[in-house]
Simulated scan of single mutants.
Amino acid sequence: MRILVTGTAGFIGYHVARRLLRDGHAVTGIDGMTAYYDVALKRRRHAMLRESAGFTCHEFLLEDAQALADVFTGCEPELVIHLAAQAGVRYSMENPQAYINANIIGTCNVLEQARAHPPRHLMLASTSSVYGANRSVPFAESQRCDHPLSLYAATKKATEDLAHSYSHLWNLPITICRFFTVYGPWGRPDMALFRFTANTLQGRPIDVYNNGDMARDFTYIDDVVEAVRRLSTTPPRGPGESDAGASPVAPCRVVNIGSGRPVSLLAFIESIEKALGTPCIRNDLPMQPGDMPRTWADCSALRALTGFTPDTSVQAGVEAFVAWYRTCYATTVASPAAQ
């Protein structure tokens, strides 16, 4: 298939593109190479993808509507996987405009091109953060998501609503993937696992918010890729589908992609200590604005649609990350995550 993937120099985008290339597809990638975190890491990911003859990449921001239109016209994608976004809860309080530009304007431009060049299936990345202040767990796709706790979450929920409207108006088959705390090799330096590993190896303390009284549905990257791959061949058919996240009026559905097994932050830190063979020095801090106390995915819709449930244990996933980190970064030299 001809597949367009946005955000191919990003963490999830890189892994998804690599899997699609390995499966024999022609992949066109787009990435803006923003400086939110180490651009050198992004370029290393793209360099590895370029080793495949089936990969073509373009470097521009999705806010550039004409550049995006040119790519769609040139590749006429059968499948679009839109993963590019401005991520990060705390950074959204420092630079809100980046989230409006990348997440809302950029996504709207992707939807406009999908309308002009309809693919068989459009997949859109969202986040567990959209569940916001919901207290009923596990989080199910049928729950209302009306109380976001951060601007990041608000912009991602806005993209979900935009996608649904385009699906309804233009009969576009769209799957919205709500990712739950994705981690693993080639992960983002701003995420906890990367920062905790880097700081501990350098003898620095790690910042532990809410004194560690938090839980996350950590989901290993290979499981996320497998879920996306399987969902890509199962586009929503339209109203009348019975799965939890299906729209009653459009060929649009929401699907949680998580492990379904929340892990406390303190247990996660213990897994890192075990993998590193050294204790972490904790700097306990209060809860940060915009953070959610816990996330927990109801994965029944994913299982019903694909027959797949993520099953990589946190210990195995953390050990894989630590092995990658030791290979890519000398422990005596500061990595991009050092604080």
Rank of each mutant, 00 (worst) to 15 (best):
P262Q: 04
R261A: 04
L285H: 06
R261D: 02
N256Q: 11
V263L: 07
I257K: 02
N283G: 08
V263N: 02
C252R: 00
V255Y: 02
G245R: 06
R261S: 05
G277W: 10
E270Q: 15
M287S: 11
A244V: 03
D291W: 01
A275M: 12
I281P: 07
P251Y: 13
P286D: 01
V249C: 04
D291V: 02
L266Q: 10
D291N: 10
F268P: 04
R253T: 07
L276Y: 14
V255M: 00
I281W: 12
M292W: 04
T278L: 13
P251M: 12
P289Y: 03
G245T: 08
P248A: 14
M292N: 03
A275E: 13
L285C: 05
M287C: 07
K274W: 10
N256E: 04
L265K: 06
L266E: 14
G258Q: 01
R261I: 08
V249G: 03
V249D: 14
P251F: 11
I281F: 09
A267D: 15
Q288N: 08
P262D: 00
M292S: 00
P262W: 00
G258C: 01
S264G: 15
A250R: 09
F268Q: 10
F268L: 15
F268C: 10
S247Y: 08
L276F: 10
T278Q: 15
D291G: 01
E273M: 07
A244S: 09
Q288L: 04
S264K: 06
L276D: 10
T278M: 13
G245Y: 07
I269S: 15
S264A: 01
R282H: 11
G245Q: 04
L276K: 02
G245M: 03
L276G: 09
R253A: 10
M292C: 02
I269F: 06
P262H: 00
S271V: 07
N283K: 12
R261P: 04
M292E: 01
A244I: 11
M287F: 09
G290D: 05
V254I: 08
I281R: 13
